[in-house]
């Protein structure tokens, strides 16, 4: 089963009409003869006990309101969340994993940033 797979990277998807990349849009409808796609959204949820929003997954929706409602239906069925953020995937910018080595290099030789680096007497309390 030979498939033609367009190897664009996740997050580079074009919302809207079929891009030159060749793959057809996800979830589309026709309007005036042209296919229009539902954009992809990333979902972040903060739980009752949580301090920050965590990425839980993605979904397609026509607009922000639908994205929030769908996120509620899909990702909070067990009272997991009290706050939902949705962001269109195209607005997320990520670091390039190929450049990880050089990007994080400055931190590699600075062990003195960690508390365990410092050798202090055991009698010292509250520190």
């Amino acid at each position: 089963m030979k498939e033609l797979i367009t190897k664009y990277y996740y997050g580079d998807l074009e919302g809207g009409t079929s891009s030159g990349g060749g793959s057809s849009p996800a979830v589309s409808g026709t309007r005036g003869g042209t296919d229009v796609a539902w954009p992809l959204w990333e979902v972040f949820i903060r739980s009752k006990q949580g301090l920050d929003h965590k990425h839980v997954g993605s979904l397609h929706a026509a607009d922000a309101q639908m994205a929030v409602e769908n996120a509620r239906d899909v990702y909070t069925r067990r009272q997991e969340g009290i706050s939902i953020w949705v962001v269109e995937s195209k607005y997320i910018h990520a670091s390039n994993p190929d450049e990880a080595q050089s990007l994080y290099d400055p931190a590699n030789d600075k062990a003195y940033r960690h508390p365990t680096f410092y050798d202090l007497p055991d009698e010292l309390t509250h520190m």
Partner: peptide, 27 residues
Amino acid sequence: IAKVQDEAGHGLYLYSAAETLGISREE
């Protein structure tokens, strides 16, 4: 109903995961 609803959710998580590999939902 709750069980069947969960299955829909599972399908969605998996379609989303598959899409990260470069295939569209429609395909």
